[in-house]
Simulated scan of single mutants.
Amino acid sequence: MNLSTDQITTLKKLISFKGYEEIDVQYEILDHVACRIEVLMDENPKLTLDEAFRKAHSEFGIFGFADLADSYRESIRKKFWSRYWASLRSFLTSYRVVYLFLLGWTFHWMSQNFTLFGEKVTAPGWGVIGLMVAVVFFFIYYHRIGKNFKGYATFKHGLSFFTGFQLILQVSVHGTKYLIGEEIPTTLSFQGVMAWITISAMSIVWISMFLLPRVIQEAVDETQKLKAIYEA
């Protein structure tokens, strides 16, 4: 037998009741479950859809659909991490790397000509301050773009590297105090080590700022394709 549209809709709801609320995860599970349910109902026409669903669910083992859903999400994470590293290699070997040098020159010029509340700030210090401003606009952009796709694992898990991004950003922000002054500490001391950790973290985040819009757009495009298929 072939499942009707109403039966497929019911199956989606049953999958959702199991705790799988992401739309593309539901369809990934549905692809594996629907055929099995059709077989079960062919073998025993007296089975209701709910009974066939529970029987199919039990055949996936003690964890039910969890392994299937986790495997799907992990494949998304791996795919987008791969795209991030590919974008990084492309950026570092293209003319766009000049943008980093222009930023560095700008922050050096600011360190020579401006103060912050009467305090001299090093070029990396201005880099962190500029980064904080840029990140605010970036997250506004991210949430504006993502509000239509928050129900899709492809968008959410495709950008899972944001966790690491936020951690490195916090290191940059909290380390700003080690970059206040006329010179960057160069001695082998706690302040000197923290200053260079902050500079490294700040550099990583600035590079990511050039890459993330493209990666986000790829996540949007892929999710949009899935959305068009599922809504059809």
Rank of each mutant, 00 (worst) to 15 (best):
residue 9 T to C: 06
residue 221 D to G: 00
residue 108 H to E: 11
residue 209 M to H: 07
residue 39 V to F: 09
residue 201 A to L: 05
residue 91 F to N: 08
residue 61 G to P: 11
residue 126 W to T: 07
residue 11 L to I: 13
residue 169 L to P: 07
residue 3 L to R: 08
residue 152 Y to M: 02
residue 38 E to L: 00
residue 123 A to S: 15
residue 191 Q to C: 01
residue 101 F to V: 12
residue 209 M to V: 03
residue 213 P to R: 04
residue 217 Q to R: 09
residue 62 I to Q: 12
residue 130 G to R: 06
residue 214 R to I: 09
residue 42 D to G: 11
residue 164 G to H: 02
residue 50 D to W: 02
residue 42 D to Q: 15
residue 41 M to V: 01
residue 52 A to C: 03
residue 99 Y to E: 11
residue 33 V to Y: 01
residue 188 L to T: 06
residue 83 R to I: 02
residue 194 M to Q: 13
residue 201 A to H: 05
residue 209 M to T: 03
residue 131 L to C: 11
residue 72 Y to D: 08
residue 214 R to T: 10
residue 158 G to Y: 03
residue 52 A to P: 02
residue 44 N to V: 04
residue 81 W to Y: 09
residue 97 V to C: 07
residue 169 L to H: 11
residue 5 T to H: 13
residue 208 S to Y: 12
residue 29 I to W: 06
residue 35 C to L: 11
residue 173 V to E: 07
residue 162 F to A: 00
residue 193 V to F: 14
residue 220 V to F: 12
residue 30 L to M: 13
residue 108 H to G: 02
residue 163 T to E: 14
residue 121 V to H: 04
residue 3 L to I: 07
residue 144 R to M: 09
residue 166 Q to C: 09
residue 60 F to Y: 15
residue 65 F to K: 06
residue 101 F to G: 12
residue 103 L to R: 10
residue 73 R to W: 00
residue 136 V to M: 14
residue 136 V to D: 04
residue 114 F to L: 13
residue 106 T to N: 09
residue 41 M to D: 03
residue 202 M to K: 03
residue 44 N to L: 04
residue 91 F to Y: 15
residue 79 K to S: 11
residue 113 N to K: 13
residue 110 M to K: 12
residue 101 F to L: 15
residue 56 A to F: 00
residue 24 D to H: 04
residue 54 R to C: 01
residue 101 F to K: 11
residue 186 T to I: 13
residue 28 E to M: 05
residue 1 M to K: 12
residue 199 I to H: 12
residue 148 N to T: 08
residue 22 E to T: 02
residue 132 M to S: 15
residue 59 E to I: 01
residue 190 F to W: 12
residue 22 E to P: 03
residue 144 R to D: 03
residue 175 G to Q: 06
residue 156 K to I: 08
residue 124 P to F: 07
residue 230 Y to M: 10
residue 35 C to E: 10
residue 174 H to Y: 15
residue 39 V to H: 10
residue 187 T to G: 14
residue 173 V to T: 15
residue 141 Y to A: 10
residue 5 T to P: 01
residue 232 A to Q: 11
residue 9 T to R: 12
residue 107 F to M: 14
residue 12 K to R: 12
residue 6 D to K: 15
residue 74 E to D: 12
residue 223 T to R: 07
residue 43 E to L: 14
residue 92 L to Y: 05
residue 128 V to A: 07
residue 117 F to A: 13
residue 199 I to F: 06
residue 135 V to N: 07
residue 200 S to H: 05
